[in-house]
Nucleic acid binder design. Structure first.
Length: 592
RNA sequence: CGGGGUGUAGCGCAGCUUGGUAGCGCGCCACGUUCGGGACGUGGAGGCCGGGAGUUCAAAUCUCCCCACCCCGACCA
């Protein structure tokens, strides 16, 4: 039994000045955690209790799914990460350090290499596979900017699993098993979430999904449909392709002087102001223009390559989407020096006329999927102060291909059902993806196959942020006055408040009930303090957020003694006869 | 890494413009009163004013440098 009279906790009346988001504010105020380092937190007794409950829930669901728990050091030697290239590729986010002899070590940000090596060490035959292993381990990442309390830290606990299969079909099964176990887990946590398609990016996998818990303080932007259940990470959204427009009868493209119109805005204003250019039924808009811009792609092998992108002028290029598409290459905007190498590029007036592998610059030219055959555009005429109106795709120019790089805007068309999409924020609580054979090949993992020949396993990787989930749960369930834990995660089943003055019958009744509850297997937090006023005890109970609050107060002194039982979430309270209150509480708090 | 803000008692803050004995609320200690919604009285303890250098008779206050934290952006399995 936890007694408030000696529990190592101090609740705060005021919000800590350095906490912004609700979970951070309340976890500190209620005495669960304290900041100990930039991006690092210490856990007080209540916090550690809650942490263990979350961790055990994760463990339980993994075990249920048949995955086996192992454990690795967090402090690892450089070599395996050197072999896979991640010692350098991981960049500034990797904590690197040296031992007394000057040998390089790292604090692991994730453990693909070690799992792969463990399987290499143990598994020799196809009979040893498939297998799914996981660990719950502290991870380290030298985040540029830790923020939002436990939501983004430099030291955090992650459950990471890895599956090893010999066939792609087997990987699909392992992936599906993990996906289902995550669904079970997050349902059990009571955490709202969406599953969005994600890009596996440079990891080279074929399939990837993120579990996002929708909340305003989340850092991930995703797209969801206002009508159907489509949801996708912004990088993974596909643009519906319109039908081609017949070319017959479309007006000729006309080159027009448009002095002083280097931007889309100035261009639209200019052509709207010229009566001879007016459209018969409406004003020109930015969506009628075709904006062309050039970037430099930097490939991992050090080579660079220019790439031209054409998108409707009412949109910007979304660098995240672009980089997801061109990964593992990185994209950077064209510099003045780059422009100098291509004199035919008229900055601000670049048009399809000089772009493409068949044209003057020879720069590969990819366009937005909306730019289909028969669509006509106002676009640069490749000379300063000149644009061309009615330049028609498939007739006047032919791009080298399409690219998904334009930003997504609210109201865009859902690729699944055709309704409008909206943009939402969420926090990533889980990520599953198919890794393939990258790590197995790099670290020379193979087993003897059924046919006697060596076979390279294919891997899946599956992560859950344990400490982040705790924060997300606090975020999602708390209210203005405090935390409000789901029953299974709560540090106790019942918060028993002793009211009434010391020396009254309340002390005896509360002690008795507390002992009986404990005997019935309930976890009790008993506020037996006499030094603080009842108001403080009630406020603390609400702040600490145990889902059921029982009060031994004035009702205890009645002819037919009662205790009050209150639901923290709804605020509903009822008076229960003292001799029934234990049964009542056992019933209310029964785990479902 | 860029922009903005903030560093003063355990926590939340004032004082800084205009240099001159470091303050308030909460919390903490002691005693008494109170006891169902963050009670009250009386008396206490607690500070290298983020760090360093400078200006000055004198610096929390003015100048310069550094550090830390928060927010926005960049970055981010």
């Amino acid at each position: 039994m936890l007694r408030m009279s000696n529990l190592f906790v101090k609740t705060l009346r005021d919000d800590p000045a350095d906490a912004e988001v609700a979970s951070h504010r309340l976890l500190v105020r209620a005495g669960y955690i304290r900041r100990a380092a930039p991006g690092g937190f210490s856990w007080l007794p209540l916090g550690w209790e809650v942490y263990r409950n979350v961790e055990n829930m994760v463990r339980d669901e993994m075990n249920k799914a048949g995955f086996q728990e192992v454990h690795f050091p967090a402090l690892l030697p450089r070599e395996p990460y050197e072999t896979t290239g991640r010692w350098t590729e991981y960049g500034d986010n990797l904590f690197r350090l040296q031992d007394r002899k000057g040998a390089d070590f790292l604090l692991a940000p994730t453990h693909e290499e070690m799992f792969t090596l463990m399987v290499k060490d143990i598994a020799a035959s196809y009979k040893d596979l498939p297998v799914s292993l996981y660990q719950i381990q502290t991870k380290y990442r030298d985040e540029a900017r830790p923020r939002a309390g436990l939501l983004r830290t430099r030291e955090f606990v992650m459950k990471d699993s890895y599956s090893f299969d010999l066939t792609d079909a087997g990987l699909d099964e392992s992936y599906a098993a993990h996906r289902q176990s995550y669904i079970d887990l997050f349902d059990r946590m009571g955490l709202p979430y969406v599953i969005v398609s994600a890009m596996s990016g440079a990891m080279g996998g074929s399939k990837s999904e993120e579990f996002l818990s929708p909340m305003d303080v989340g850092e991930d932007t995703y797209i969801r449909c206002t009508n159907c259940d489509y949801a996708a990470n912004v990088e993974a959204v596909t643009t519906p392709v319109p039908d081609d427009v017949p070319l017959d009868g479309l007006p000729e493209a006309i080159v027009h002087d448009t002095p002083g119109t280097p931007t889309i805005e100035t261009l639209v204003d200019f052509i709207n102001a010229d009566a001879s250019l007016r459209l018969p039924d409406r004003d020109w808009s930015a969506a009628d223009t075709l904006k062309n811009l050039v970037v430099t792609l930097k490939h991992p092998d050090g080579t660079v390559e220019p790439l031209a992108i054409g998108i409707p002028g009412d949109r910007d290029v979304d660098m995240k989407r672009l980089e997801a598409v061109v990964a593992p290459a990185e994209a950077e905007p064209f510099t003045e020096a780059d422009f100098a190498k291509y004199p035919s590029l008229a900055k601000g007036y670049i048009g399809p006329g000089v772009l493409g592998e068949q044209n003057a610059t020879g720069i590969r030219y990819l366009v937005d999927p909306r730019i289909v055959t028969g669509t006509a555009w106002v676009t640069g005429a490749d000379a300063h102060g000149r644009h061309v109106i009615g330049l028609t795709a498939g007739r006047d120019f032919t791009p080298d291909g399409v690219i998904e790089a334009a930003e997504i805007l609210p109201g865009d068309t859902c690729p699944a059902c055709g309704s409008d999409v909206e943009i939402a924020r969420g926090i990533e609580i889980g990520h599953i993806f198919q890794l393939g054979r990258k790590y197995a090949e790099a670290l020379d993992l193979w087993v003897q196959g059924e046919d006697g020949k060596p076979a390279t396993p294919t891997m899946g990787s599956y992560g859950v942020g344990v400490t982040r989930c705790l924060a997300a749960i606090a975020e999602a369930t708390s209210d203005d006055i405090g935390l409000c834990w789901p029953r299974e995660i709560s540090p106790a089943d019942v918060h028993l408040v002793m009211a009434g003055k010391e020396g009254g019958p309340q002390r005896e009744a509360a002690e008795k009930i507390a002992a009986e509850l404990e005997a019935r297997g309930l976890r009790v937090l008993f506020d037996d303090r006499v030094k603080v006023s009842p108001g403080v005890r009630f406020k603390d109970a609400e702040l600490i957020g145990i889902p059921t609050i029982a009060v031994a107060g004035r009702g205890v002194a009645d002819d037919e003694p009662t205790m009050e039982v209150k639901d923290r979430r709804t605020g509903d309270r009822e008076d229960v006869p003292l001799d029934q209150v234990v049964d009542h509480l056992v019933a209310v708090t029964k785990r479902v």
